[in-house]
Design a protein around this nucleic acid. Structure first.
Lengths: 226, 226
DNA sequence: GACTGTTTTAAACAAATGTTTTAAATATGT
DNA sequence: ACATATTTAAAACATTTGTTTAAAACAGTC
């Protein structure tokens, strides 16, 4: 019964918590077992005792966090399938950005996935299957509905990429953004960014849909030189 | 006079070449001096002799590459200021994607900068000043022109972020993209992606500009919550 | 209270990695 | 040809980092 709250959790849980924070900040390779065990107020050997090795700890962190990640920020943010596609897009983007930018505690769920995307480890396949794939599928449904039947699957995928890219940008490039425009990622950022990305993407999709419609009616597009 | 072409370059240059490739693939921290000197067919100590330490080598690689990066793919791709803004946007995106996705040799210029953006080292400030900053400024001019005077600076910045984000996405997320859609980043990708991102962004900007114009004329926008 | 299985701890270990040392090889200048 | 400076090479070194070991501390059971 020490004065520290952390001591109320057993070693295994403290390790999971500390490892999540450290892995999300440094990535799998750069994170050290010493920093993790120090932050968890545990012995270095405790990691190997409870999780076998460093990679086992990482897998456990992923499994433990990925489940609760979508629990705190469900991809639809309680905006059901019956809502208009635009509202669902707004909810998707807000949820995605929240998971990436939220600095609350524990907030490393989305950051871990973003790190896996940029610096894959052996766990990438599992994450694609359980998190990234469903996320893409969900967004694809929304985009397909927004483009009506005016677009082929390739265009839909491209638009999904454009939306994901805009969101991930604010995570991957956050250091540069903060240097260039210090107040950009401050308070209220998630709301502002969500509004912008939604409006930007809605305009783009409407534009593409309009173009596709014109093409359907035989009015040739002006192809930019390849 | 050995049979290998590499032997025609002196050790210092072979080290720069090899280090560029390894740093671009693994990042500063994960790259090892042993892999670099092995690939350069040089002794391990040669790095310290010629560049002081690993960080000195990294700085030299950046300095050596950043100059020639914009030489092979100038940001305007010879599309002068007199061209229409849309053409210049297309050229900017194609140039940017080329530097990120080109697998030619040596093609690590853009990749190094992208790695610095996602995993900054002590050299970030210098890179922002010499490369990233001017790049943003260049794109900002184009976007400002595209939005006419219908938009404030904040909206322009946001659109610049959206465009940069779409481009960087295909670099940072290339492993996931290849897993999900194996043929997406194959041959002709740069051309296809450029066309999509240009059209997507042009539609978005036109949409935003139209909205802003409506607001100017007193027709209230429908603000999404928060 | 002794026994047994579990958990924690400190120390040692082994592998990886950046750096330094010292000598040999090579080039340069006179 | 000799002397000097520069470059290369092999080995050793120091540090970091993941892992293992062996003993101590703890918890539960009879």
């Amino acid at each position: 019964m020490k004065g520290n709250d952390d001591k109320l959790l057993d070693t295994r849980q403290r390790l999971l918590q500390a490892a999540g924070e450290v892995f999300a900040r440094r990535g799998f390779k750069s994170a050290t077992v010493r920093e993790i065990s120090l932050r968890a107020k545990a012995n270095i050997a405790a990691i190997n005792y409870h999780f076998g090795d460093k990679e086992g700890l990482y897998s456990a962190v992923l499994e433990h966090s990925l489940g609760s990640a979508l629990k705190k920020y469900p991809p639809d943010l309680n905006v059901t399938t019956k809502s208009r596609a635009e509202e669902r897009l707004d909810a998707f983007i807000r949820s995605f950005l929240s998971r990436l930018l939220d600095d609350g505690r524990p907030a490393w769920h989305g950051k871990l996935v973003a790190l896996e995307i940029a610096n894959p480890t052996a766990a990438l396949d599992q994450i694609i299957e359980t998190v990234i794939g469903p996320l893409y599928a969900h967004l694809t449904v929304i985009v397909r509905e927004l483009m009506a039947d005016s677009a082929d699957e390739e265009s839909i995928h491209a638009c999904v990429f454009s939306i994901m890219g805009q969101c991930l940008f604010f995570h991957h490039s956050r250091h540069v953004i903060t240097k260039l425009y210090p107040q950009e990622l401050g308070a209220g950022a998630i709301g502002r960014l969500t509004n912008h990305i939604t409006k930007f993407s809605m305009g783009a999709i409407k534009g593409l849909a309009g173009q596709a419609e014109k093409m359907t009616r035989g009015i040739s597009d002006n192809p930019t030189s390849l």
